[in-house]
Amino acid sequence: MEYKIKHAPQLPKKTFITALSSCNNVIIEETSLLTLSELGLLGEFLKLVPQVTVLHSVFQNINQSTHRFGGSLNTQTPQQILSTLQKHISTLRLLEVDGNTPIEKYLNCFPSEKTLLLTDDLYLLQLLGKPTGTLISGNLFNVIEFLYDKEKISKELFHESVASACELGLFEPYMRMNLLHESVAYYLNVVGGVDYSQTRFKPIFTKLFEIKRDSAFCFDLLFRMLDPKKLRTELHPETLLTLFRAFLIRHPIATLSSTIAIWFIRKCLNEDSNKLDLSGRSETHFKHWDEFQSIMMLEYGADIDLKFMFESVVNELLCLKEDVRQRAFEAVKLCFIPTTQESTMFERIYQKISYTTTITRLSEE
C-alpha cells in the first residue's frame, strides 16, 4: 500500500462475531477492501457473510482504477478487488447514497438500522463520530480472527496474516492484547531461545514500537506484551534479551540493566505473595530471580557481581511511588530465604541506597 493509514480499533472477538450475525447492514469501507485484498482474505470473508454493502461510489473508484490510463499507475490491487467482488456479486449490495464527500455518504448509510462498519481508517471513524448503539466498527484483525475461528485459514496462515498486516501501510496497528500475546507465544516460544528478528514476529515488533511512537507508552506496552500470565508461557532469556536490546535502540529511555530490572520487579508484583514454602521463600518468585540472573549473565558475563544485580533492582524500586514501592520491595524479598546471605545483602543495599537517595533529595530542597 502506498500511503499511511492510522489504524482503526479492533473490536473484542466475541463482540465482532455477535455484531456480524446480528447487524442488518455490514459495510466494507475502502481501506478494509484494500487491506483484506492485499492479504488474500477478502474472498474468504465474503463467502461467509450473507450480504455485504459497498458504496456505489467506492465501487466506481475501484473500477476506474483498473484502467491503465484512467486509473492509478499500479492497477493490480484494484483489479484484484474488483475480480473478488464480481465473484460474490450475488451477496454484494452496491449502495447509492447522497453526499458531496465520502464522509457525508457514509453518514447517510446508517441513519437508523444497526450497522457493522469494517474500516482500517481511524480518521474516518473520528470524522463519523464515535461508534454508537447503531454503529459498530471492526478492523482487519477482527476478520483474520473470524476466519481462523471458522477454520477457513490454518493456524500458520492466521499468524502469517497478522504479521503481513503489519507490513501494510498501517500506522500504529491496532490489535487487542490477547491477539498480540498469541503472536508472541506462537513465534517466540522456542526451546533454547531465538532472535526475534529472525522470525515473522519482526514486522509486528517493528510496527508496534516504531521510533515515532511515544516512548513511555511503548515502554509500558513492552512489559504488558511480555506478561507471562497472559502469554501462558515463559520466553527464553536469550529471546527476551533480543527484544530488550531492539526496543532500547528505538526508544533509549533506560539502560538495559534497568529495563531488565523493571521487567523482573513487575513479574514479582504480579505474583501471589501468600504461597510460601517451609523456608519462607516463594518458589515462583525465586524462579523469577533465577530468570533475572540468567538474562543479566547473558549480557554482562557469568562472573557478574551480585551487588550490581541488587543495585539495578533497588534503583528501580526507589523510582516507584511510595505505596507501590513497599509492595514491590516485599515481593522481591520473597525470592530469597530469610536471613540468608542473599536476603541480608539485598535488604542492606536497599536501605543504603534508600538513605542516600533521601539525603540527596532533602539537600536539594
Rank of each mutant, 00 (worst) to 15 (best):
H181L: 02
K152R: 15
G192A: 08
F247K: 01
K229D: 11
E156T: 12
Y187H: 09
C166N: 14
D227F: 01
T206N: 08
L241Q: 07
R266F: 11
F223Y: 13
V194G: 03
F219Q: 10
F209E: 08
E238D: 04
F219W: 10
L226Y: 01
S257C: 02
T259K: 00
D227A: 08
E234Y: 08
Q198N: 12
K207N: 14
R232Q: 08
K212L: 05
Y196L: 09
T199L: 11
S164L: 15
Y186M: 07
Y186F: 15
I249S: 01
I262F: 09
V190K: 14
T239D: 03
E160P: 04
L243A: 05
F244Q: 00
A261F: 05
R224N: 11
L179V: 15
N178F: 13
L243F: 04
S183K: 05
F217G: 04
G193F: 11
V190Q: 14
S257E: 10
F201I: 09
P173F: 11
D195H: 15
D195F: 11
S258I: 01
M175S: 08
I253T: 07
L222G: 03
E234S: 09
L243N: 04
V194T: 14
I260N: 00
T206L: 07
H159G: 01
H251I: 04
S154E: 12
F201W: 07
L208E: 06
L188W: 11
I211C: 08
H159C: 02
F171Y: 14
S257W: 01
F247L: 01
S258M: 02
C166Y: 08
T259V: 10
A185E: 13
L170N: 05
F217C: 09
T255K: 07
K212E: 12
A246I: 03
F158N: 10
L179D: 08
V191Q: 13
P228R: 02
F158L: 11
C218W: 00
G193H: 14
S257Y: 00
R224S: 08
E172T: 12
E182R: 14
L179M: 10
P203D: 07
A216E: 11
S161D: 03
K230I: 01
S154L: 14
E160W: 07
F171G: 11
A163L: 09
I204H: 05
F209S: 05
A261P: 03
L221A: 12
P228H: 08
K202R: 14
I204Q: 02
V194E: 06
F264D: 02
H236L: 04
L179G: 08
I153T: 12
L180F: 07
I260A: 01
V191W: 10
N189R: 09
K152Q: 15
E182M: 13
Y187Q: 06
